[in-house]
Computed example of a mutant assay.
Amino acid sequence: MQKDVFSSLIAKQSRYLKPHAMKYTGDEDDAKDLIQDTLLRALLNYDKFREDTNIRGWLFIIMRNLFVNNYRKNKMKMLSLDTEEAIQLPSYITADSHLNITQIYAMISELPCQHQKPLLMHMEGFKYEEINLQLYSPIGTVKNRIHLARKRLKNRLV
Rank of each mutant, 00 (worst) to 15 (best):
N144G: 07
H115E: 15
A42M: 09
Y92V: 02
I62G: 04
E124Y: 06
L119R: 00
D27L: 12
Y92C: 02
K23T: 04
N100I: 08
T53N: 13
G26D: 05
Q36I: 07
I93Q: 03
L39Y: 01
L119G: 00
G125T: 05
T38M: 00
L39F: 04
H20W: 14
E51G: 07
K154N: 08
M121V: 02
S97R: 04
L81W: 04
T25G: 07
M63G: 03
E129P: 10
N100L: 07
L153D: 02
V142K: 01
K48G: 11
E85F: 09
K48M: 11
E85A: 15
I146T: 03
L43V: 05
E85P: 08
Y16T: 10
L79V: 11
Q36L: 13
T83A: 14
Q114T: 00
L89K: 01
H147T: 13
Y24V: 01
L39H: 03
N69Q: 10
D52M: 10
N132C: 15
L148R: 11
D29R: 08
I10W: 02
T141S: 09
H115R: 06
E85C: 14
R50K: 15
P90Y: 05
G57H: 05
Q134S: 11
T83H: 06
T83S: 15
N69K: 14
M107D: 05
E110C: 08
I146L: 04
I62H: 06
E110G: 04
R64P: 04
F60C: 10
L148T: 09
S7V: 07
D96P: 05
L9C: 02
F6R: 03
L148Y: 08
D4M: 13
R64W: 01
H20I: 06
E28M: 08
P138D: 10
Y136I: 10
R145Y: 14
L40M: 15
N74Q: 13
R41W: 10
Q88G: 09
T83G: 12
Q13Y: 04
N100K: 00
L157T: 01
D52G: 01
A149P: 00
L17N: 03
V68R: 07
R56G: 15
P19I: 02
N69F: 08
V158T: 13
D37N: 07
N144R: 13
